[in-house]
Amino acid sequence: MSQPARSFPDPEAAAIGGGRRRGRGAVSNASGRFEPLSRIEEDDGWEGLGDRPPFRTEVAIETARTAITRNQSPDIAFDRSINPYRGCEHGCVYCFARPTHAYLGLSPGLDFESRLTAKPNVAELLRRELSAPGYKPRTIALGTNTDPYQPIEKTYRLTRKILEVLEETRHPVGIVTKSALVLRDLDILSRMAAQGLAKVAISVTTLDPELARQMEPRAPTPARRLATIAALKEAGVPVAVLTAPIIPALNDQEIDRLLESAAAAGASEAGYVLLRLPDEIKDLVQEWLLEHHPDKMRRILSLVRQTRGGKLYDAGWGKRQTGEGVIAWTIGRRFEIASRRLGLDRRHLKLRTDLFTPPVREGRGERSSQLSLF
């Protein structure tokens, strides 16, 4: 059944049966904001919705045109990134990248975590872009939109191929991930780290395994992420902990314990992001709260509004990551005090760019390759 598009779908009406979305984060699969119609599932009595198959992960192949994405945001520490995948199977309900699926004509809800896209030519494109005349190296960020080590990386190995190019060219890279799969690439990362070319941030949202399963159903457990921090540290890879997002009245009381656990595991830096609810995410999170934490829903949303000038989100530079007002200030100070006490507030490690060696451009041949030595 199709109805005129609505800005705020009724969470109870939009919800999809739990059996069909087992192991998924979002509760619904509403159409993206660019679609002319909004579709919701409704049992009309002819065919039971419970008989429909569950959502399964599907991967489409995209022939990408570029590898490096650039940004000029003044409140972000990097100006370039690579995303080998669209969508993320981890299913984190709060993921700020969910709205990007609307550009594909797909839902930021369940489609985002079950209908994924891989870019098999990304490493080839990267090599070409690094060899462009006048290219100036700065740290490339992996994991800024979707996790580069989500489960399908086991099959496609695109992140591994990207790292091979970056190691070959001695180009700095910073990685953000929730996944222990990053340890598969310790051989490359440890060699790059020894030259000051690599660092990793592990995202740990909560120490409560049940809450983690609800929020991030296909990501590794909190204990596994802390073990990953320890393994990276042991291999000589600088590692930070990213506590993101901090959700008032849900996981903010864990700030001290979470940072203590990460520091004990070997993290040397820490960062945080306050819950962001742009576009469709505000509806998805409200649906999720109604299902999993109905008793806290009003309180959480009220506190979020207090950190966003009375709204659920404010995209203004300089405050979209940390919010504003008394609640946001209190969270920020608590994080800073704990970080200082644990030695996690040191200056962020700056990776080297002076070792960069451009790859040989296609078609230049052996003569050019030899001349490039001089």
Results as ranks from 00 to 15, higher is better:
residue 132 A to C: 02
residue 285 V to R: 04
residue 200 V to I: 07
residue 71 N to K: 04
residue 258 L to I: 04
residue 333 R to V: 12
residue 339 S to Q: 11
residue 193 A to E: 01
residue 359 P to R: 05
residue 247 I to K: 02
residue 182 V to F: 07
residue 316 G to T: 14
residue 15 A to Y: 02
residue 237 V to E: 00
residue 189 L to V: 01
residue 374 F to L: 15
residue 317 W to L: 06
residue 22 R to E: 13
residue 270 A to H: 03
residue 232 L to K: 03
residue 199 K to W: 03
residue 302 S to C: 03
residue 272 Y to L: 14
residue 201 A to Y: 13
residue 189 L to F: 00
residue 32 G to F: 05
residue 170 R to C: 02
residue 190 S to H: 01
residue 48 G to D: 14
residue 343 G to M: 03
residue 310 G to H: 00
residue 131 S to M: 01
residue 140 I to C: 01
residue 36 P to V: 10
residue 243 T to P: 00
residue 71 N to W: 00
residue 92 C to W: 09
residue 63 T to R: 14
residue 336 E to C: 08
residue 7 S to G: 12
residue 65 R to W: 09
residue 33 R to P: 06
residue 74 P to F: 07
residue 105 G to E: 08
residue 78 F to N: 05
residue 136 K to N: 06
residue 60 A to E: 13
residue 139 T to W: 05
residue 310 G to W: 00
residue 44 D to M: 09
residue 365 G to L: 01
residue 349 L to P: 05
residue 57 T to A: 12
residue 73 S to C: 11
residue 330 T to S: 14
residue 294 P to A: 11
residue 223 A to G: 10
residue 267 A to I: 08
residue 353 T to E: 14
residue 169 T to L: 04
residue 337 I to K: 14
residue 153 E to I: 12
residue 77 A to H: 11
residue 148 P to A: 09
residue 251 N to P: 02
residue 291 E to P: 07
residue 141 A to S: 13
residue 3 Q to L: 12
residue 374 F to Q: 13
residue 76 I to L: 14
residue 53 P to G: 07
residue 21 R to Q: 11
residue 258 L to W: 00
residue 183 L to I: 05
residue 148 P to G: 03
residue 90 H to K: 03
residue 245 P to T: 04
residue 321 Q to H: 12
residue 189 L to A: 03
residue 143 G to W: 08
residue 280 E to M: 09
residue 164 E to G: 13
residue 370 Q to L: 15
residue 315 A to G: 15
residue 249 A to T: 04
residue 298 R to S: 14
residue 250 L to G: 04
residue 238 P to C: 04
residue 232 L to D: 05
residue 362 E to T: 01
residue 161 K to Q: 15
residue 272 Y to V: 00
residue 269 E to V: 03
residue 7 S to M: 10
residue 172 P to W: 01
residue 118 A to W: 01
residue 161 K to Y: 05
residue 323 G to R: 00
residue 232 L to E: 06
residue 100 T to G: 07
residue 19 G to W: 05
residue 301 L to T: 08
residue 126 L to F: 02
